[in-house]
C-alpha cells in the first residue's frame, strides 16, 4: 500500500510536468548557450543550475555578470527575482506540514514555478500525505534532471556558436515569453510597464541597480493599481 502510493505519486508527478518540459528545455538551452558565449563561462553556468536552480534568476545573474555588475548587486537582483518563492512556500506549507521533517527540509530545494503549479492543482483533490510527498518529488526531480541536461547541452552547443549571431538576445526573448501570461490583469500590466520604464530611466543608476529600482517601482505601481481598483 505504502510502496504503491510512493510509486504512483512519483509517476503522476513526473507525468504532470512532462508537457511543461517543452518550455523548460529551450529555456535551459538558452541559459547554457549564453553562459558559454559570455564572460561567465560554461562551467559556472552549469554550476548555477544545480546551486540556484531557478531559471529567471540564473539568466539575470549571467546577464549582470557579463555586464560587469558588482557582486553585491548581482546577489540583490537575483534574490529580488526569487522572492516570489515566499508565495509558493506559504501556499504549500499546510500540505508539507504533514510530511516528515527531512522531506520538509529537502523538498523545498526542488520548488519551482512549474513544480508549484502542478502540485497545487493535484493537492486540491489528493489526500494521502505519502502520495502528495512523492508527487512533488516526482515533479521536482523530473524538472531538475531535465534542467541540468538542458544546461549542459546548451553549454556544449554554445561553445560552437560564433558571437556574431547575437545570441545574448535570446535572454530578453525568454523573459518576454514569460512576461505575457503575467500581464493579463490591469495591475499586472501596469507593474510591467512601470517596471520597464523606470528601469530604462534608471539605466545609468550607480552599481547597476537599475533593474532593482525598476522592479520596486513596478511592484509599487501594481499594488497601488490593485488598491485603486478595489475602491
Amino acid at each position: 500500500m505504502a510502496a504503491s502510493a510512493m510509486r504512483e505519486g512519483l509517476g503522476d508527478g513526473a507525468r504532470a510536468v512532462s508537457p511543461l518540459l517543452l518550455a523548460v528545455v529551450p529555456f535551459g538551452l538558452v541559459l547554457g548557450v549564453t553562459a558559454a558565449a559570455t564572460a561567465v563561462g560554461g562551467l559556472l553556468g552549469i554550476a548555477t543550475s544545480s546551486i540556484i536552480f531557478a531559471g529567471a534568476a540564473q539568466l539575470v545573474t549571467i546577464q549582470l555578470f557579463d555586464a560587469g555588475t558588482s557582486l553585491f548587486v548581482v546577489i540583490l537582483t537575483a534574490l529580488v527575482v526569487n522572492v516570489r518563492h515566499l508565495m509558493y512556500s506559504a501556499a504549500l506549507a499546510p500540505h508539507f506540514s504533514e510530511f516528515p521533517r527531512r522531506s520538509r527540509w529537502l523538498l523545498p530545494y526542488l520548488l519551482t514555478d512549474q513544480a508549484f503549479a502542478v502540485s497545487m492543482t493535484r493537492y486540491e483533490t489528493a489526500d494521502d500525505p505519502l502520495y502528495k510527498r512523492w508527487y512533488f518529488a516526482g515533479a521536482g526531480l523530473t524538472l531538475w534532471v531535465s534542467w541540468q541536461i538542458a544546461t549542459v547541452a546548451g553549454v556544449v552547443l554554445g561553445a560552437q556558436i560564433p558571437d556574431s549571431l547575437g545570441l545574448s538576445f535570446a535572454i530578453p526573448l525568454v523573459f518576454l515569453a514569460l512576461l505575457i501570461p503575467v500581464v493579463q490583469t490591469r495591475p499586472g500590466l501596469l507593474a510591467a510597464v512601470v517596471g520597464g520604464l523606470v528601469a530604462v530611466a534608471a539605466f545609468d543608476a550607480p552599481y547597476g541597480l537599475g533593474l532593482v529600482i525598476g522592479a520596486l517601482a513596478g511592484i509599487t505601481a501594481g499594488v497601488a493599481a490593485e488598491q485603486a481598483g478595489r475602491r
Partner: peptide
C-alpha cells in the same frame, strides 16, 4: 514559519514581483 498565514502586506506586493521584474529586464534590453 510553520503554518503561519502570510500577512497581506507581504502577499500583495509579491503578486507583482513577476511582471515588474520581467518588465524591468525586457524593456531596457530591447
Amino acid at each position: 514559519f510553520g503554518e503561519r498565514e502570510m500577512p497581506a502586506w507581504l502577499e500583495r506586493p509579491l503578486r507583482y514581483v513577476a511582471p515588474a521584474v520581467l518588465g524591468a529586464i525586457v524593456l531596457p534590453a530591447v
